[in-house]
Amino acid sequence: MPRSGAEARRRLQQAALELYRERGFDQTTTAEIAARAGVNERTFFRHFPDKREVLFGGEADLRAALMQEVADAPDGLQPLDVLLHAFRKAGRVLEENRPFSEPRLELIGKTPALRERDLAKAAFLTEAVAEALRRRDVPDRLAGLAAQTGWAAFHHAAQAWIDDPSQSLDAHLLQAFDDLRALSANAPPAQVRPES
Results as ranks from 00 to 15, higher is better:
M1I: 01
M1F: 01
P2L: 02
R3T: 03
R3K: 10
L12M: 07
Q13L: 01
A16Q: 06
L17Q: 00
L17D: 00
E18I: 00
L19G: 00
L19K: 02
L19D: 00
R21M: 01
R21I: 00
E22R: 11
G24N: 02
F25H: 11
Q27E: 15
T28I: 09
T30R: 07
I33V: 15
A34Q: 12
A35H: 15
A37F: 02
G38Y: 04
G38R: 05
G38L: 03
E41P: 06
E41Q: 14
E41F: 02
R42W: 03
F44K: 10
F44N: 05
F45S: 03
R46V: 04
R46I: 02
R46W: 02
F48E: 06
F48H: 05
F48R: 09
R52L: 05
R52I: 00
R52W: 01
E53N: 03
G58S: 04
G58L: 02
E59L: 02
A60R: 10
D61N: 09
D61G: 06
L62R: 09
A64I: 01
A65N: 02
L66F: 03
M67D: 06
D72T: 11
A73N: 05
D75N: 09
P79T: 05
P79D: 06
L80S: 02
D81P: 00
L83V: 07
L84R: 12
H85S: 09
A86Q: 04
A86R: 08
R88C: 06
G91D: 03
V93S: 11
L94Y: 10
P99N: 08
P99Y: 07
S101L: 02
E102F: 01
P103K: 01
R104W: 00
L105E: 12
L107F: 00
P112L: 13
P112I: 13
L114H: 12
R115E: 14
E116W: 12
R117T: 13
R117A: 14
A120R: 13
K121P: 00
A123D: 11
A123C: 06
L125Q: 01
L125G: 00
T126M: 08
T126A: 12
E127H: 12
V129T: 15
A130I: 11
R134L: 10
R135D: 10
R135N: 12
R135T: 04
D137G: 01
V138K: 07
A143I: 09
A146G: 10
A147T: 09
A147P: 09
A152H: 13
A152D: 14
F154M: 13
F154A: 12
H155I: 10
H156D: 14
Q159K: 12
A160W: 10
W161K: 08
Q167R: 15
L169N: 03
L169K: 02
D170G: 10
L173V: 08
L174G: 04
Q175N: 11
F177E: 09
F177P: 05
D178C: 05
D178K: 13
D178L: 13
D179C: 13
A182M: 11
N186I: 06
A187Y: 14
P189F: 10
A190K: 13
Q191D: 11
R193C: 00
R193G: 03
E195P: 00
S196C: 00
